[in-house]
Computed example of a mutant assay.
Amino acid sequence: MRVEIPPLDKVDIRLLRVFKAVTECNGFAAAEETLGLGRSTISIHIADLETRFGLKLCVRGPSGFSLTPQGQVVYEATLRLFSEINSFRTTVAGSKGQLMGELTIWQMENIASDRLNPLVGALRRFRERSNGVEITMNVVPSNDVERGVYDGRCDLGLTGSRSPLNGLKYEQAYSERISLYCGSKHPLFDRSASALSDDDLRQVDFVRRGFLTRQQEMVETNWNSTVVSMHVEATLEFILTGLHIGYLPDQYSAAWVDLGILRKINPERFSVDWPVYIVSRESNAPSVLVSTFRDDLLSESRQLANQEAN
């Protein structure tokens, strides 16, 4: 029996929002707080949507929550649908000289304390205009920012990684200083930089950052690595064990350096200015919201750079 997909109405949009939240929260229970709904109500909504479309969208069981192949198709189509709805609202509001709609920004972790981070100033600039925009921000690993922009889960982001994904536009916002660190319990902690040889460094256990390719890692020697970190905080925790060395942002590490439990290893050789990018989707006609906020980020970046130079 062929099941027709009915024309969408307001109820379908509401149910799709529930489905989107459940998918992105990876389960019904985790979506309760996001949606402000009880688990039984969420379950009813998903069942109604499955009945409406004649499709099994997700599976719940001992192994956890997962989308069916049809559910994955519906989720991806839902992202495109909501993006187009938001674009329609934004375009119509823009024709009246207004900013309206939803803007989702993802940023990599642990950059809030960086004095060159333009995000706070850009938010102030954006809100100085009269607008009814709902802004959502999320903090995720650096490479997840790119994937989020690529697949439409967010509109633009700030990231320290740059992947070969087609259709993404990268613009450098600023640079953060990255250095190689060891903890006070590590054998290299009390060794001077001049006393460290390449043979010494080949004996270390290096924290490899899982969101970078090996070509992107700043490793000059064939270092051993038995641990992988997906977050800056996890890298720090590995280093503090005294068993590993790894790269950390200087602004993030400063508090532990001041406490005497972290130190740089040969900063003349193993420190670098790492670019932080504004990433957005390539488009001949970008959203008014995205282009406006992107311009605010770039303007704030230039102002902060000038202040730093003076």
Rank of each mutant, 00 (worst) to 15 (best):
Pro7Ser: 10
Asp9Met: 14
Asp12Met: 13
Phe19Tyr: 15
Lys20Ser: 09
Cys25Ala: 15
Gly27Lys: 08
Ala29Pro: 04
Ser43Ala: 15
Ala47Leu: 06
Thr51Phe: 09
Lys56Gln: 07
Ser63His: 08
Ser63Gln: 12
Gly71Cys: 03
Gly71Trp: 03
Val74Asp: 02
Glu84Tyr: 09
Asn86Tyr: 06
Val92Asp: 15
Ala93Lys: 08
Gly97Asp: 13
Gln98Asp: 11
Arg115Cys: 11
Asn117Phe: 03
Pro118Ile: 05
Pro118Gln: 11
Arg125Leu: 15
Glu128Gln: 10
Glu128Arg: 11
Arg129Ser: 15
Met137Asp: 02
Met137Cys: 09
Met137Ala: 08
Asn138Trp: 00
Asp144Lys: 06
Val149His: 00
Val149Asp: 00
Arg153Cys: 10
Asp155Ser: 06
Leu158Gly: 00
Thr159Met: 03
Tyr170Arg: 00
Gln172Ser: 09
Ala173Arg: 01
Tyr174Pro: 01
Ile178Phe: 06
Ser179Trp: 00
Cys182Lys: 01
Gly183Ala: 06
Arg191Tyr: 05
Ala193Asn: 14
Ser194Trp: 07
Leu196Ala: 07
Ser197Met: 14
Asp200Ala: 12
Leu201Glu: 06
Phe206Pro: 00
Phe206Thr: 03
Gly210Asn: 15
Leu212Arg: 04
Gln216Phe: 00
Glu217Trp: 02
Glu220Cys: 10
Thr221Ala: 14
Asn222Trp: 10
Val227Ala: 11
His231Cys: 05
Val232Gly: 01
Phe238Asp: 00
Leu243Lys: 10
Leu243Glu: 12
Gly246Val: 04
Leu248Pro: 00
Ser253Phe: 01
Ala254His: 12
Ala254Glu: 14
Trp256Lys: 08
Arg263Val: 04
Lys264His: 10
Phe270His: 04
Asp273Leu: 15
Val276Arg: 01
Ile278His: 02
Val279Glu: 01
Val279Lys: 02
Glu282His: 07
Ser283Val: 08
Pro286His: 05
Ser287Leu: 05
Val288Arg: 12
Phe293Pro: 02
Asp295Asn: 09
Asp296Cys: 15
Arg302Glu: 15
